[in-house]
Design a protein around this nucleic acid. Sequence first.
DNA 1: TAAAAGATGATACAAGAC
DNA 2: GTCTTGTATCATCTTTTA
Length: 565
Amino acid sequence: MGFSEEMVVKVVQENGEGNTDSILETLLTYSALETTASVQQNPDSGNCSSDYEGSLLNDFSDFDSFSESEEIMSPSSEEGRKLLHLTKMGYSEAEASVVMERCGLCYLIHFCNIFLLMVGRMSKFHLDSIKDPRLFNCCIENGPDSTIEELTDFICAAQIAKAADALFPLEDKKPFSNGSSHKKRRNWGYDLLLRKKKLKLEKRFDEDDDAVHLPNPMIGFGVPNEPDQITNRVLPEAALGPPYFYYENVALAPKGVWTTISRFLYDVEPEFVDSKFFCAAARKRGYVHNLPIDNRFPLLPFPPRTIHEAFPLTRKWWPSWDTRTKLNCLQTCIASARLTDKIRKALEDSDGEPPLGIQKFVLEQCRKWNLVWVGRNKVAPLEPDEVEMLLGFPRNHTRGGGISRTDRYKSLGNSFQIDTVAYHFSVLKDKFPGGINLLSLFSGIGGAEVALHQLGIPLKNVVAVEIAELNRNILRSWWEQTNQRGTLTDIQDVQELNGDRLEQLIKNFGGFDLVVGGSPCNNLTGSNRYHRDGLEGKDSALFFDFCRILDLVKCIMNGTKSMII
DNA sequence: TAAAAGATGATACAAGAC
DNA sequence: GTCTTGTATCATCTTTTA
């Protein structure tokens, strides 16, 4: 079923460039005929047209183990062997583990069987497609109910789009609202250059596992009032909107995590930014997005940039030997009273300036727990109100309504830094003067919504997905208090967002303009001493749901949902 | 029973010494 | 180049308290 370039050109000439439905039908017909002829010529091999035979043998030379389907089907096969099969199919070990853990063995066997059946029918192009994360997501989305036809349709669609990409220039691309039929399929395409780049990248990663380097200083494509601004970049074609998307997570993740995140999000280069360039506290985060990066502007007035500006009363008690001007990352837990008491006693024991040993101990604890000076020899953790302010949220945003102090710290510690995110979102203000339709995944206490609101971008329709009821209540409360004119739909679980639900929402709203999400970092952050398991961790694996949902939104908005659902 | 408090390192990176 | 040192990190689990 592979489409050679000659075949595509011939079919386009026969049907005309504008008649894509006819092109698709003819291509499928020709392809089916060619496959039939090929199988008849060589029924044992099962491979398709002779054009690809040589390369196919080479391409599949690594897949010898797949020749014995019974072995994979056998209930006695070990999980490790399945893992090996998946890794040979082009997935990283982590990704394969996620499939096995999340989808179960029946999915895995189903997945492998699909692959086996397709190997006999696929062209070289198909091999590329089956390694694509979208097929991975398609299998997860459809699960055991998916059929060979559905999956081959998926790949055929990708193939058609690829052919269309070669024929229709990029500049023809128009926004979703007025896209023509041939443009609707454009987002399925992944051009050859991109694929080559990807392979090159993967090869480089093999040589150097630490391929994604964190910039120093951590300013991403630029921050306000700093030199070295980057104002343009070339996005991979598959990453282009609509919709715009914006993904966030901790920058200091285990090795290889950002490589995987980038690969699953269309090979878009992550932008690593430390929020210390926007406020008085550090927050090192990675952002993968397809937003424009020119003509960004910050929220005004600027928030306080130093500890003393943020907390002027601490200046009186701040010792000269504590040289901090910025706080470290605001976490979900605070220091104990026992620790601050220990520090007070250690300082009171020394007459005048404490000895270097005491200074070192106190400074270490102050840095670790973000303690500030509130009296003579007295340090204290930040109050929830103060954390709210540093993160750019309205005062009392998380206060009241049944939430405990502990939970306020937790919710705030897991949220965006508003000024940082708003700086990135600012490019949308001119593009959506009439308001924006937002799909907010893992919305938490509404960092994305607050950032857009503070930029003056009207919120037309917001679908917020958040597992914690407390956080949903906070967002709902903010929504009502700020007299939003749009609609807020809250959903508890990302698993509820399947193709049908998304199709309905998109039908109601006319599509999403922006998909935002910061999936759980629990298994990525260095603060986690127990389960820092990477992207296959119980919570952080929800990243793949972000990818799944984003892919579905793109597919539905481009009118091709029926090809994978 | 819920909230608060207390105890619990590993990992990764940068910078400097050699 | 290698080694050491210093530093930062959207947390989890158990116990105590109200």
